[in-house]
Nucleic acid binder design. Structure first.
Lengths: 153, 153
DNA sequence: GTTTATGCAAAGGCTTTGCATTTCA
DNA sequence: TGAAATGCAAAGCCTTTGCATAAAC
């Protein structure tokens, strides 16, 4: 799927979600969604705020926080709490499920993918009578680069 | 392992850790470890602070935060960031590895265990040249109780 | 006797809240 | 027109920091 198609797709999903829940379709909300889907990777509110400030849409931080909640609720955005108090966000639609390796030394975040996690999700849900919506798997340790640096010292 | 043996074991581990890293063996540090291992389940700093205030040892919040960092560093305590900004902690020694189901409706946290996660850890580490230390797997969704309530309404 | 840890309070950083103003329906 | 969203600034909450005091080594 090319970027333009993806934009159209997520805009439609968001629009239907807002309608279904009786929320208003404000230009700010769609502008935020557009900006979120214009980039790959993780971002925090401050970075998103900065990116939008330099463009046509200047939205308040409060609106960014509110809109993130909506986008998370309709599964267009995922929230991560890697470390510290600051939340990291990431677009979640039409992307392969992936999880994260987090280096406890340098803080770098790498992505990886293992289909076996789907089995675990399924089993856990069945055993506990839990309706699974999404998961977060973080593997913490030392990245290859920091392992090398440690050897040298 | 009975509780007393476990206490002795983790106290020794902590003592050796402090020695190895040139940290002082203060009574506060051991009192905190004792209190942490006196209870099951998750706790936050405020709860731990409250529990210790009612007992012989009255420690400052700053010392609790500092000591948690040490206990995490020597793998006696695990930190969780389930939701919100507040960290949850949990003793980590001599307990079966487990992961968490988190209800997005009521916030309840259930534990579950699936040995297949070990394979994923292993594979991810090998493929990415990553030295795995620990992982956190959270499955988010709706718990059985909240599913029932939703049906009724 | 030094150096490190503690305790207290203040500062910090991210997030939420309150309220006046705007705008969608 | 009425209800909901926005923007701004203030307030909140958890956590970290600075510094004087106390204690480990």
């Amino acid at each position: 799927m090319v970027a333009a198609e993806q934009q159209a797709s997520v805009q439609r999903i968001f629009s239907e979600y807002l309608e279904r829940h009786g929320h208003r379709k404000t230009p700010e909300r769609f502008a935020i969604l557009t900006e979120v889907y214009a980039h790959d990777g993780h971002f925090d509110i401050e970075r998103l705020y900065g990116r939008m400030k330099t463009k046509k849409y200047r939205v308040s931080r409060a609106t960014l926080y509110n809109t993130m909640d909506l986008l998370i609720d309709c599964d267009l955005v995922r929230r991560h709490r890697f470390t510290g108090t600051q939340s990291q966000f990431e677009k979640a639609h039409a992307f392969g499920q992936h999880d994260h390796l987090i280096c406890t030394t340098c803080g770098a975040v790498q992505e990886f993918c293992d289909p076996r996690i789907q089995q675990i999700r399924k089993t856990a849900g069945e055993v506990m009578g839990f309706e699974v919506r999404y998961h977060t798997l973080q593997i913490h340790g030392t990245c290859a680069s920091c392992q090398e640096k440690r050897q040298l010292s």
